[in-house]
Nucleic acid binder design. Structure first.
Lengths: 148, 148
DNA sequence: GTTTAATATCTCTAATTTGAGATAATGGTA
DNA sequence: TACCATTATCTCAAATTAGAGATATTAAAC
């Protein structure tokens, strides 16, 4: 009985996690599309905006996409002149992606709108509930990653 | 200041929500692939398994996929003989998807493994923490859906 | 009884993503 | 030095997904 109860809670947690993720990202994705990007492109730009130039591999790890996809997305962003590739001097296997001035300006322009979309997306919780949710999701995510 | 604090919590919540969703579903997706399905196919089968025959449209709503995609996925599952299409007698625009005996048996076979994967994926939280997370995520998801 | 709007599915194209393998560079070891 | 395992990126084909429009049906308004 305890086992059954536990099992139902786990399945239910998976379901509500999926649904809330989908609805919350629906808000941010709609905002991102308005600016002519897809969510992956935005993810790459956001990493570079906050962390500075990064090796392609590390970008892929941060936003959880495959190596083939990273090449494809960085190609598109380079064509849009939002970033440039910079070979690494010490390790010639490594290539950094770095925002152009245009790319940095673009992100600065769209970020207020993005923040608004995020605020609206998670406005269902109070500040205190957000803190609780953050703590629980951190613990959940970290454990899932470690046991993968 | 309060505003800044609030803003950071919202962004952080989005980030930890995304990461925990990705890592948790990494577990279940790996299990699903082992059985020769992709997550969308499994989602369709799971809906039919638990809710009985459903109009294609309603399946799409439940697992949040596009109409073009639902046709494609149901085609594949029909080829695999896991489900059949059944035209609706009352409304001839509607087509039901219904599990075949083979499809029901297949799901019964893989469900224990699926449940195990789910358990492992969310094992980072205690039963009490799961209940808290479920309540918070329900509230978050419902509000995000309603304000979309 | 038309007309109109809404609904359900399907078709088709284009975009996105993965995964396997190729290429090249690095680091360590014998 | 030569060899081997590992790493980083890229290439390419196949799988997956979304989105726009086509078709058929229903329901409601007139």
């Amino acid at each position: 009985m305890a086992d059954t109860q536990q099992r139902n809670e786990s399945l239910e947690l998976l379901i509500v996690l999926s649904r809330s993720y989908n609805w919350v990202t629906a808000h941010t994705n709609r905002d991102i599309r308005r600016h002519g990007l897809n969510p992956t492109e935005f993810g790459v730009l956001e990493v570079l905006y906050h962390k500075g130039p990064q090796p392609l591999q590390q970008i892929g790890e941060k936003i959880l996409i495959s190596s083939g996809n990273i090449t494809y997305v960085v190609d598109k962003l380079e064509k849009k002149q939002l970033l440039v590739r910079k070979p690494c001097a010490e390790d010639r296997r490594v290539i950094y992606a770095e925002l152009t001035d245009q790319g940095r300006q673009f992100l600065a322009d769209i970020f207020p709108s993005h923040k608004e979309a995020v605020e609206k997306a998670v406005s269902g919780l109070t500040a205190e509930e957000k803190r609780q949710a953050i703590a629980l999701l951190k613990k959940l995510g970290r454990a899932a990653q470690e046991s993968f």
